[in-house]
């Protein structure tokens, strides 16, 4: 029932919206340095599908995230992930879990343009049942006529378990290269390189994934989609992940 209300509110917003500035994302796995204009709102829906783990042939996972973004000033943007939830199927069970809510802040240090690199800093706190995570990210963006390059470096600290006693760190480097054949569309490639540090005292495997991306926008809404294929050989990580993002501005 509450989901119906939620959908009707979304539809209503979609219909009554005024002209607005899209902050479309061209790369679902990589953030860009542009933030929203003051007073703008955007609803963003994330859907991620993960499959093909070598150590569990029945593994399949859907992840959903509902996010509301708000331009506080032309440089500062806040976002609330009001739900992060998953449907996970393994050889042992299938279960739906509510993972967390999160608060995110992005500050644009330097606006990207053909004259200068775009720079933004990103901080996020996630909290859920038996789960806490802090995340910091530095975002760089280069614009060359129809080509854009994005680079993110991310550091994460995670606490999990009954009394948040299991800890780990994570370092992620991600890249994206996109080509814009026309203003409403981009094609690209993305790569993500992750490394975990369990208990902060050991070093996990390098997991590298790479894949193509496509995005499309008009003035009120946009979407971007990208499959990522693992090119390293880590059995406990999915070999295929597909992420779809779409946003509605109002």
């Amino acid at each position: 029932m509450s989901y119906k209300i939620f959908l009707s509110v979304l539809c209503a917003l979609f219909i009554v919206q005024s002209p607005c500035i899209a902050t479309s994302r061209t790369s679902p796995w990589v953030y860009h340095s542009r933030t929203m204009m003051e007073g703008e709102f955007e609803y963003e829906q994330w859907v991620t599908f993960k499959t093909d783990k070598k150590n569990d042939s029945e593994y399949n996972e859907w992840r959903f995230r509902h996010e509301l973004e708000w331009g506080v000033t032309d440089r500062l943007q806040l976002a609330l992930y009001f739900a992060d939830w998953r449907i996970k199927q393994t050889s042992e069970q299938e279960k739906i879990t509510f993972r967390d809510v999160a608060l995110e802040a992005v500050y644009q240090v330097q606006t990207p343009s053909i004259d200068q690199v775009g720079i933004a800093m990103y901080g996020e706190i996630k909290y859920g049942p038996e789960f806490l995570e802090l995340e910091g990210k530095c975002i760089l963006e280069w614009e060359f006529e129809q080509v854009s390059v994005l680079y993110n470096v991310t550091v994460e600290a995670e606490w999990e378990g009954d009394d948040l006693s299991e800890t780990k760190g994570k370092l992620e480097n991600s890249f994206s290269l996109t080509y814009q054949p026309e203003p409403s569309m981009t094609w690209g490639v993305q790569a993500v390189w992750e490394k975990e540090f369990p208990e902060w005292n050991s070093i996990g495997n390098d997991v590298v994934s790479i894949g193509p991306s496509f995005s499309w926008q008009n003035s009120n809404w946009w979407f971007s989609i990208s499959p990522l294929f693992q090119i390293t050989d880590v059995d406990s990580e999915p070999d295929l992940q597909v992420r779809l993002l779409f946003g509605i501005d109002f």
């Binding site: 204009m37 606006t111 990207p112 343009s113 053909i114 006529e145 854009s148 814009q180 203003p183 003035s219």
Partner: peptide
């Protein structure tokens, strides 16, 4: 032109 007009798409030649 190079900042506001490249919010949604890259600046067009």
């Amino acid at each position: 032109y190079i900042t506001s007009c490249s919010r949604c798409h890259n600046a067009i030649r």
